[in-house]
Amino acid sequence: MKIENFNDVLLSRIKNRDRDFHLLLGNGFSMAYDPDIFSYNALHSFIEKMEDEDLSKILNVIETKNFELIMQNLDSLTALIGAFDGGQDIKNKIKIASEKLKVSLLDAVRSLHPEHVFKVPEDEAKACAKFLNLFLSRGGSVFSTNYDLLLYWILMRSEIVNHVDGCGREILNYEPGMDRDDFEWSELFWGRNKKRQNVFYVHGALPFFDAGSEIVKEEYSESAYLLQKISTRMERGEYPIFVTAGSGDEKLTHIMHNHYLSFCFDKLSEITGTLVTFGFNFGEYDRHIVEAINRAAKKGRKEFPKLVSVYIGVYSEADKKHIEEIEHLFMVKVRIFDAKTVDLWGRD
């Protein structure tokens, strides 16, 4: 396959003005900002330093920094123990260890995260907003599989006016004739603006909490930064909507059991035109995303409108080879471009 550059993607966008262009972000988006914070290596090191006996055993036996693979191994071990009647006690221990690892992963993301949005330099925030606007300004959508706050921060700080994450408020004390200054507003609930939604966190994200009948989005206030408020919730034993691990099928099962996540996945499955991916490597545990793309491509059928092409950003020759090896999984035209030609954070 020929490696194009990002200018070729932009040229295609200009030539196909009648086509929607959407964006899918993976962990490479955050790593491009700071790999010392957002890589699996950083998360792994944080959890190692916790010196938890059970987690140390897991990390020593399963010698990988890929948390999805660790979770997969734990699930497989539980299934094997069940198949060989190994006893409920050991199964319970593995389940507890798995849950502890998920919680620790969240704690690591929270602790390593920059303190607040203004830690991102102004010129870098503007460069990233310019990149995102290439898609949002033309009626496209942005999908992210990242849990962190970077995308949310850039969208809010840069005042990209046409971005909608589906959340809104309700007036709690409305009476006819009441002055607007006297309104009392609810928390931000997802769903109030989902008809206009064009930003989707397919695997959840730190600001989104499942409150049972509602999805609540944590927000800034004059008294505390967003990350502080998220931390307060987590210290109360509340945890964000967060698809952490498992095979593609297991991730999809998790997604389909949460109405926010399933809505986001369905929207990805319905896009038309062209999808551009950045920092998403389509690994072994991402087959549910491939399935969403194939649904959007209407499984290769001729009916329109549908998704017709995918531009996949790659960083290396190994990335290129990987996409060539899995190209047959896609029921849509696949093109690749050099992700390093995107001036994402304005540092080039």
Rank of each mutant, 00 (worst) to 15 (best):
A129Q: 01
S141M: 11
M156S: 15
I160D: 02
G139V: 10
Y152V: 03
G140D: 06
M156I: 13
S144W: 01
E122W: 05
S111P: 08
L134C: 08
T145L: 09
L134T: 03
V142G: 01
Y147S: 04
P121H: 09
L151D: 01
T145A: 01
D123I: 14
I160T: 13
K126W: 06
N133P: 09
T145R: 01
E159D: 15
K126V: 13
K130Y: 12
L112T: 04
W153C: 06
L150S: 00
I154E: 00
F131E: 04
R157A: 13
I160W: 02
A129R: 05
Y152C: 05
P121Y: 08
L149R: 00
V142Y: 00
F143P: 02
S137Q: 06
F118C: 13
A125L: 13
R157F: 09
N133R: 15
N133S: 14
E122H: 09
P121C: 10
P114Q: 04
S137L: 04
E122A: 07
L136Q: 08
L112D: 07
S137D: 12
N133E: 14
S141Q: 10
D148M: 08
V117L: 09
K130Q: 11
C128N: 06
A127N: 10
F118N: 15
L112A: 03
L132A: 02
D148L: 03
W153S: 07
E122T: 10
E124F: 00
R110L: 15
I154S: 00
I154V: 06
E124S: 11
G140C: 12
F118L: 15
H116K: 11
G139P: 06
N133I: 12
T145M: 05
Y147T: 03
R110H: 15
W153I: 04
N146H: 06
K130H: 15
N146E: 03
S141K: 04
R110Q: 14
L136G: 02
L134D: 12
M156L: 13
S144F: 03
S137W: 10
M156A: 15
F118P: 03
L155M: 05
R157H: 13
L134Y: 14
A125S: 15
I154Q: 02
E122C: 11
G140E: 05
L132P: 05
K119N: 14
I160V: 14
K130D: 12
R110E: 14
L112Q: 03
R138E: 10
Y147M: 06
K119W: 09
L112K: 06
A127Q: 08
L136E: 00
L149D: 02
H113K: 04
L134W: 13
L134P: 07
N133F: 09
R110K: 15
L151V: 05
C128A: 14
E115Q: 14
L136S: 11
L112S: 03
H113L: 06
R157P: 01
L150H: 02
L149I: 07
L136T: 05
G140V: 07
N146M: 02
Y147V: 02
R110P: 04
G139N: 09
L112G: 03
G140K: 00
C128W: 00
F135T: 05
